[in-house]
Design a protein around this nucleic acid. Structure first.
Lengths: 150, 150
DNA sequence: CACTAATCGTTAGATCTCAAACAATTATTC
DNA sequence: GAATAATTGTTTGAGATCTAACGATTAGTG
């Protein structure tokens, strides 16, 4: 359990592995002209076509400002359009272009393949246990210091 | 195992949790004037005082260019000095200032407390299993597509 | 209806990160 | 010793992310 970088804390290991896996995923998607955030945005637009930007950002797990930048780039690249909702002009309605639809299919294929590779050799029980531990870590990280564990 | 963002893939969950934990850690360190990269750099300088920048970057897990930026900022903030090694003028020797030493102690205290909180309620066996799964995920992510699993 | 509060998305500035190209220095080869 | 190769750290440009402040629009209140 020791690695060349010295003693590992679980937080450090979690960070390192997720960065590593994330980088591999990004490279995988880059091969088909995508990226991690683009994938998540395309996927969310396909599953929640009427989501406004605030909802989209929440679903993707990023802040609104970040989403604005990604959407601006995707719109400039011709993947989607943004129009003001006629019933509430504060709200943007996003729509994939035919080019965006094509991009979704390409990136989805790559994401599915990556996910299959990522899961190889992992049993259902192992994954379930892993997710339980992840949930515990997330809860622990944000627990108030003065708060006793329930 | 379902969350409001729809079906979770293990890669997505790993990313989300590590980002969340990392953000909590960062906030924790920010309270004492540090940050995650600053902590890792200070820690590595304390454990490997004679490391050159290339070695330091590898130990911290970032690229040389990124380290250069961090070191420049830390030097500007008076936490450390960089001098050319007289025996090989390509190499920088880094040295913590008294202020840097103080910063290390403050940040270390915060990091240790965060780590303790993160580990609460997790058994040794659970952590061991978790680390096994992390290692598998990392290996899977970078496995060549054409490569059969050994 | 006028005013205030809330919502939505954007802008500006900052942090962290990477890859590629580069200059300076040292090591290796002939 | 001269030329080439390798090493070290830096610069440049770009991607992704966040916070705070902002302008435009809608909702709520009296």
């Amino acid at each position: 359990m020791h690695d060349p970088r010295g003693e590992q804390h679980i937080g450090r290991l979690l960070w390192d592995v997720s960065q590593s896996v994330g980088r591999a995923f990004d490279e995988h998607l880059r091969a088909v002209g995508g990226s991690r955030p683009i994938w998540l945005i395309l996927l969310t637009l396909k599953t929640k076509p009427s989501a406004n930007q605030r909802e989209l950002a929440a679903a993707v797990g990023i802040q609104g400002a970040t989403l604005t930048h990604h959407l601006a780039a995707m719109e400039a690249d011709g993947l989607l359009t943004r129009r003001r909702d006629p019933s509430n002009r504060r709200i943007h309605q996003m729509k994939l272009t035919p080019e965006g639809e094509q991009a979704f299919l390409r990136v989805k294929d790559a994401a599915v393949r990556f996910n299959a590779k990522l899961n190889e050799g992992l049993s259902e029980e192992q994954l379930e246990q892993f997710q339980v531990t992840l949930a515990q870590l997330r809860a622990n990280a944000w627990r108030d210091d003065a708060e006793p564990r329930a």
